[in-house]
């Protein structure tokens, strides 16, 4: 699936200081019935964003006007549970390009990278600093630099490097996915099958 090339993003961030955010919360199962990939952002965090009568719940960060930006900051074990790629699609479709946590669930992390959504793993201590920076000033900006693999709190200049597989980094920077590459290996794969 085509996505925007990723290089550097400077943006404020939306905090979600809840642990073990599972993919059923990111996109509840009843919204998985589409056969095309579009519109999932409307139902991102549906049951945390809206009450029973579909009214926005004021104190949920996505509904709180003071928080904006392309970076979502979660607490540890973000994206646990179901393998539904709709979770990554929903976050991307809503407008986020980066998700930050001290710890991601494996399948979610892979799905995010495969869809141009950069998962940034920071240390627990640095994560606390990010939350503190947002709390001190919701318009505080952060810089996510993929080429140098760094995440910077602009207000303080504090920075941490993050890991990413070199191959996946190349894919993200160039907006590439794995399918074209795998299809180019067909002869090798057929030989392997023998």
């Amino acid at each position: 699936m085509a996505y925007d090339k990723f290089s550097k993003i400077v943006s404020p961030a939306v905090p979600l200081p809840i642990e073990n955010v599972d993919t059923d919360q990111i996109i509840p199962a009843r919204f998985l019935k589409a056969v095309e990939r579009k519109g999932f952002g409307d139902n991102l965090f549906r049951d945390w964003r809206y009450d029973k009568s579909n009214q926005p719940i004021a104190d949920f960060p996505l509904n709180d006007g003071k928080y904006t930006g392309k970076i979502l900051v979660g607490a540890k074990n973000f994206g646990s549970g179901s393998s539904r790629e709709h979770a990554a699609w929903a976050i991307y479709d809503y407008g986020f390009r980066v998700v930050v946590s001290s710890f991601f669930a494996d399948i979610f992390k892979g799905n995010a990278i495969n869809n141009g959504l950069l998962p940034v793993v920071v240390s627990p201590a640095f994560l606390e600093k990010i939350f503190a920076a947002i709390e001190a000033d919701p318009t505080a900006e952060f810089e996510v630099d993929l080429p140098s693999q760094s995440f910077t709190i602009k207000a303080t200049g504090e920075s941490e490097e993050f890991d990413i597989n070199p191959y996946k980094k190349h894919c993200l920077q160039n907006g590439l996915d794995d399918i074209d590459y795998l299809v180019s290996l067909k002869d090798e794969i057929a030989a392997f099958e023998k």
Binding site: E85, H86, G110, N111, N114, D178, I179, L182, L185, I189
Partner: peptide, 13 residues
């Protein structure tokens, strides 16, 4: 994930 489902359908890998 679904991207990987597409990979397997396309290449069995």
């Amino acid at each position: 994930g679904t991207s990987e489902v597409e990979m397997v359908l396309a290449s069995q890998c």
